[in-house]
Design a protein around this nucleic acid. Structure first.
Lengths: 142, 142
DNA sequence: ATAGGTGCAAACGTTTTGCATTAAA
DNA sequence: TTTAATGCAAAACGTTTGCACCTAT
């Protein structure tokens, strides 16, 4: 609970007003010991069920996008109907379990860093994401 | 134009009936000299504008998904509102230009193959995708 | 004749928007 | 008190679905 003043400080530093809603979202996202992956829907459910709070969807979207812009969250590239976010903003990659739609972190020790020998004129590399899709061994792949 | 009989054959081999609509889609996707990237929207526009044909959206979706299932198309993972497909089904990776929302192929010579030292029990690797996001050098990232 | 495919419109789920209200500075 | 943030409902958008009709076999 005492984290709240830290979040307040951080938000103010970032030029974001520390509102009640944003502080709640910070608690959910940044208090857990471990980083985690979530969709907006997941997050809204956590806020509603675990915190018995109700934050407007628009506000959740606003806040998540603001946090992403500030680099407090990472969006993960998957071709899915929804967007996945990660509270782990360090450089790392992912497994995506097609059976369960779950993301699994892949630490840097578990994957060699990608060596890119091409560059695009006038463009700068913003991110390199490796996505390893996995599924049950015995799955009918048609 | 003489490709049509080839497409008919291929479709029949795959257990897909060679309908007028599917043959049109084959023409658009597989006749060009070069492989390319597209969204469903792109494809529908090409069919409407270049071929002056009208194929129902549901049919386009059906066909693209059928082709993907058969391995004639690849879906590319990007966190975008829409799905991107690739007529190049060989193993290769992509640059994604955030300024223009364009995909650029990255050949295997341009990127070292990714070495994964982790595996997930009971799961098999289905694909490994590297996505390199690029944007203008001078772009305001805020 | 009979699967399988098509087309339309409606439904769906996620995300965005407009605008009046509220709260932080 | 003024600027930013919230909440709500509506709209937008890509995608999927249900079902009657059509067409390849």
């Amino acid at each position: 609970m005492s984290n709240i003043s830290i979040y307040k400080e951080k938000l103010r530093e970032s030029g974001l007003r520390p509102t009640r809603q944003r502080l709640k979202i910070c608690e959910v996202l940044f208090t857990p010991e471990k980083t985690f992956h979530f969709t907006i829907n997941d997050l809204t459910k956590i806020i509603e069920n675990k915190l018995s709070e109700k934050i407007s969807l628009a506000t959740v979207y606003n806040t998540i996008h603001a946090f992403k812009k500030k680099g407090y969250l990472k969006e993960i590239s998957i071709n899915s109907d929804k967007s996945y976010f990660d509270t782990n903003v360090t450089e790392h990659h992912h497994f995506f379990d097609e059976d369960t739609n779950e993301l699994i972190d892949c630490s840097n020790e578990e994957i060699d860093s990608v060596n890119i020998k091409k560059n695009i004129t006038g463009k700068k590399i913003k991110s390199v994401e490796v996505l390893i899709k996995v599924a049950s061994d015995n799955q009918n792949q048609n």
